[in-house]
């Protein structure tokens, strides 16, 4: 199971941002060749990012690259520059089933030609009404290990405004969460675009979490720690999960037993396992405070 919490966008055209990419604490960095790079800097951004990735080993983060969409004049050049063993994931904007299937085959061909021994993953951005209707098909395509909601473009396509409440993206958020959870991949929320409004970010992230999304994009480094904190298991959740697992061991494989007067059965045990798995993955302290 892939488990990300935070994915930070960094413009591929800015050396000062590139060389600090690893220090912001995000689980993944999305090096952006698309919207944050002007048309007349696409060529130099590609070269800059390539040289950066050749020069530095980013061991602590997942290396993602958002390329330009498949129908843009930049797509092929982006992929030619970026398909190498340093890149873990391609983030594909304006995705639909046909484009993701094409990218899947294109990546396979390039991996073979370039003798890349790993599989490069795909995160499609769901940012058109067409894509929302195709989520259940997109999620089944090889290499797709997360879906990212693109709230701004999607609401443009839907011809509605973004609001603080976010009701206009309730349906795609929910649909992405269910489709991703059914496949065991990451459901990634759209970024919160007001980088100065921490309270808004907190509410928005909590809302996404409550709907089943497990990760969120950041467009500024100061958003990362807030997202990580909210989307990590809490200390209370970890302690309870640890106590559940200790009780499981003590129960001598009974299917059902009680803890603190509450019935513990398979769904609760599975949930506890997931909490502890996440806690370990994110480097959080695991253990029960009071092992009764």
């Amino acid at each position: 199971m892939i488990m990300r919490r935070s994915l930070l966008f960094i413009p591929a055209s800015k050396p000062a941002m590139l060389q600090n990419a690893e220090i912001f604490g995000a689980d993944s960095i999305i090096f952006d060749l698309e919207d944050s790079v002007s048309v007349d800097e696409k060529d130099s951004a590609r070269i800059l990012l390539s040289q950066f990735l050749i020069s530095f080993n980013l061991d602590k983060v997942e290396v993602c690259v958002r390329v330009n969409d498949l129908h843009s004049p930049f797509f092929v050049d982006d992929l030619n520059a970026m398909i190498n063993k340093k890149v873990d994931t391609i983030v594909l904007p304006k995705a639909n089933v046909r484009d993701v299937e094409f990218l899947d085959k294109f990546l396979l061909k390039m991996e073979l030609e370039r003798n890349i021994l790993k599989t490069i993953n795909i995160i499609p951005i769901i940012e058109t009404c067409e894509a929302v209707n195709q989520i259940n098909e997109i999620v089944k395509i090889n290499r797709v290990n997360g879906l990212l909601l693109g709230g701004e473009d999607l609401t443009n396509d839907l011809e509605v405004s973004r609001t603080i409440d976010g009701w206009e993206i309730f349906y795609p958020r929910t649909k992405i969460a269910y489709a991703c959870k059914a496949r065991g991949i990451d459901a990634i929320d759209t970024p919160y675009i007001n980088t100065l409004d921490e309270e808004g970010l907190i509410l928005d992230t909590k809302k996404a979490k409550s709907l089943g999304l497990n990760a969120k994009c950041a467009i500024h480094p100061n958003q990362v720690s807030v997202i990580n904190e909210i989307l990590s298991p809490s200390i209370e959740e970890i302690e309870y999960a640890s106590r559940v697992m200790i009780a499981v061991e003590k129960s001598n494989d009974k299917g059902v037993f009680s803890l603190d007067g509450k019935m513990i059965d398979k769904p609760i045990i599975n949930k506890a396992k997931k909490v502890l798995e996440k806690a370990k993955k994110f480097g959080l302290k695991v253990g029960a405070k009071d092992e009764k």
Binding site: P15, Q19, D43, S44, I47, L48, S50, Q51, F52, I54, S55, F56
Partner: peptide, 17 residues
Amino acid sequence: GALNYTIRARLLSAIAR
């Protein structure tokens, strides 16, 4: 204050242009 990779990248871009 560019690092070596930036000098190299900017030079390669300028040559390509």
